[in-house]
Simulated scan of single mutants.
Amino acid sequence: MIYGIGTDICDIRRIKASLDKHGERFAQKILCEQEIITWKQRSARWPERGVRYLATRFSAKEAFSKAIGLGMRMPMTWRLCEIAKLPSGEPRIVLHGGLKEWFETKQLKAYITVTDESDYAASFCVVERTN
């Protein structure tokens, strides 16, 4: 049974402006530890790719927060929600700490998709109850 659906579109230029203004501190607010590593690697090879990575993660976490019905309030926080990927490249949500406990208690499962094109990153999330 579907628990919730969330979608988000993010202007990549806005993310770049925030990075230019606040530097790495902005990325550290949005990304968890593993995502920071990936962001730094991508940014070092091609800075635009790093910005797009950050924008897709921002968008995906927003879509997820809407699908679970919490928005950005506890236990949902940017850093407790990780957007990882399977070896196939398929994105998946990995939760940490109190958010993971809350999610598992409710017996939920999430599906996420992310995309970016030119100036925008977009995400779509479906959360289902597994019981």
Rank of each mutant, 00 (worst) to 15 (best):
Pro47Asn: 12
Gly97His: 09
Gly98Asn: 14
Leu95Tyr: 08
Arg92Gln: 15
Arg57Pro: 01
Ile5Pro: 10
Lys66Val: 10
Arg52Asp: 08
Trp46Val: 06
Asn131Glu: 13
Arg57Ala: 04
Leu19Glu: 07
Lys106Tyr: 09
Met74His: 13
Ser65Ala: 13
Thr105Ser: 13
Ala63Ile: 06
Leu86Thr: 01
Gly23Ile: 11
His22Ile: 01
Trp102Leu: 07
Arg49Tyr: 11
Asn131Ala: 13
Lys100Ser: 15
Ser59His: 10
Trp78Asn: 05
Asp8Arg: 03
Thr38Ile: 07
Met76Arg: 00
Glu104Gly: 00
Ala121Asp: 14
Phe64Leu: 15
Asp119Phe: 02
Ser88Pro: 06
Glu33Arg: 07
Met76Trp: 04
Asp11Gln: 11
Arg42Thr: 08
Ser118His: 10
Glu62Ile: 01
Arg25Glu: 11
Glu35Val: 05
Thr38Asp: 13
Thr130Glu: 11
Thr105Ala: 13
Leu99Glu: 08
Glu117Gln: 11
Arg73Val: 06
Arg45Asn: 14
Tyr120Ser: 04
Lys16Met: 09
Glu62Gln: 05
Cys81Lys: 02
Gln28Arg: 15
Asp11Met: 03
Ala67Ser: 05
Lys85Asp: 01
Val94Asp: 10
Val51Met: 04
Arg129Phe: 11
Cys10Met: 12
Ile68Tyr: 03
Gln41Asn: 13
Ser118Asp: 10
Tyr120Pro: 04
Cys81Val: 15
Leu99Ser: 05
Thr38Phe: 00
Ile68Gln: 03
Glu101Ala: 15
Glu101Lys: 15
Arg13Gly: 12
Gly4Arg: 05
Ile83Ala: 09
Gly23Val: 09
Lys21Ile: 04
Thr77Leu: 07
Tyr53Ile: 00
Ala44Gln: 07
Ser18Tyr: 05
Arg25His: 14
Glu101Thr: 14
Ser18Leu: 14
Tyr3Ile: 03
Asp20Pro: 02
Ala67Ile: 01
Asp11His: 13
Gly4Trp: 09
Arg42Val: 04
Gln34Tyr: 06
Ile30Arg: 02
Ala67Phe: 03
Asp20Val: 10
Gly69Glu: 06
Lys100Asn: 14
